[in-house]
Design a protein around this nucleic acid. Sequence first.
DNA 1: CATCACTGTCATTATTCTGTAATAATCCAC
DNA 2: GTGGATTATTACAGAATAATGACAGTGATG
Lengths: 235, 235
Amino acid sequence: MTERTVLIVDDEPAIRDMLRMALEIVDYQCLEADNIREAYRLIVDGRPDLVLLDWMLPGGSGIELLRRLKRNDNTRDLPVVMLTAKTTEDNVIRGLDVGADDYITKPFKPRELIARVRALLRRSTGVEAEERLQVAELVVDGESKRVSLAGAVLTMSPTEFRLLQFFMSHPERAYTRNQLLDQVWGVNVYVEERTVDVHIRRLRKSLQDGMHDYSKLIQTVRGTGYRFSSRGVPL
Amino acid sequence: MTERTVLIVDDEPAIRDMLRMALEIVDYQCLEADNIREAYRLIVDGRPDLVLLDWMLPGGSGIELLRRLKRNDNTRDLPVVMLTAKTTEDNVIRGLDVGADDYITKPFKPRELIARVRALLRRSTGVEAEERLQVAELVVDGESKRVSLAGAVLTMSPTEFRLLQFFMSHPERAYTRNQLLDQVWGVNVYVEERTVDVHIRRLRKSLQDGMHDYSKLIQTVRGTGYRFSSRGVPL
DNA sequence: CATCACTGTCATTATTCTGTAATAATCCAC
DNA sequence: GTGGATTATTACAGAATAATGACAGTGATG
């Protein structure tokens, strides 16, 4: 596996140094930022695999950055670990609610930090997102976040895209609505099961244009959920 | 899917009632305990699928029970949702550290409660049979939930699928209708014995297409029930 | 501020599945 | 062969499940 990069966001150089040292010992690359603006630039630019985000920052609280990241489709899956002082425990609650993936209270043991970073990075498969997936004339390009059918670009919403991407990277397998919620929406998201149906319908609609109908690739598995399959589907 | 059971641990009857009502509306079974000792008994006895655990309890704080559960291999995977008052946010931290899976601060909206309970339960669904079973040209694939005969996909209802799946994983053995009801329909389901006949009939019909007839694999054992067998069956 | 795209939820409709009962067919012991 | 018991088949109503259309809330955008 290729080397992973961690972005450290903290305004105290001493803390940053400490973190960098701990992380580099176990072979993570590090980026550093001491404010929100710089952090955002590095996220876009340096494509880190994980962010360590201090709570108390000049020029915008950490929660602001967190919210911004979770709102944007490109950065939603980027794991964020909050760094908090012992006294700011109510922030932890807010942070977790906004979508932080984990938190560590200062002062923390490097061992513990590493363990949590590892655990989170293990969870994010990462690789498949960039893949180019193709079935017949249907192409999903993870990099450009684009779908095309017979050369023509299809437009679809972000959720539809992620759903299609997931399906195409796990074809020929039936998924329950709950499994899809976990995989496509994320594990700490609370939405109704039936919402999946609606997005399936929207995706199916998107997979049709005047000439082609690829909506049959997404099959209903009664009593279970849905399945992406090109077996025996005339296109 | 079979009904799920939630254990409510709270010393205030009013809260318990409220929780029970909210949960029962959406078809969860409920157990109740107003102290740690009783809660533990019910966990061992009633095998709930999830625990709602109030923090402030007479006779031992909730964290004690939580710690105990997370230490024991048998109960470690039992999801626990903490119920906390607004003012005890530092407890949330400790709770999450000890291993609570989620928390809700009182007062909470029933909707939110249900959403979180659902989200946790949807992850803990038991492992399903996903193996691939094959007899001659008949293939049952648990993963894709699909049956194919000589390469062509067969369509059948969910019950037929489960019935066939059961038969193929327990071949060469006669089962009574009641045994089949227990194994395929589930133990606490009451349906007429004769209903099995009808489903056998439907399954047999599904196992035929224009060219093949695999319906003979399902044999009637007069006076007993049915058997799946490929011995001496010309296909 | 107005508008637009997106999302989640609900109400309604459409479709499929299931259990049951009624009837026909088959089997087996005598 | 006959009769009683067992199984097969069919039809049907109601239950369960999925598809669809509409709507409101939320941000994003200009």
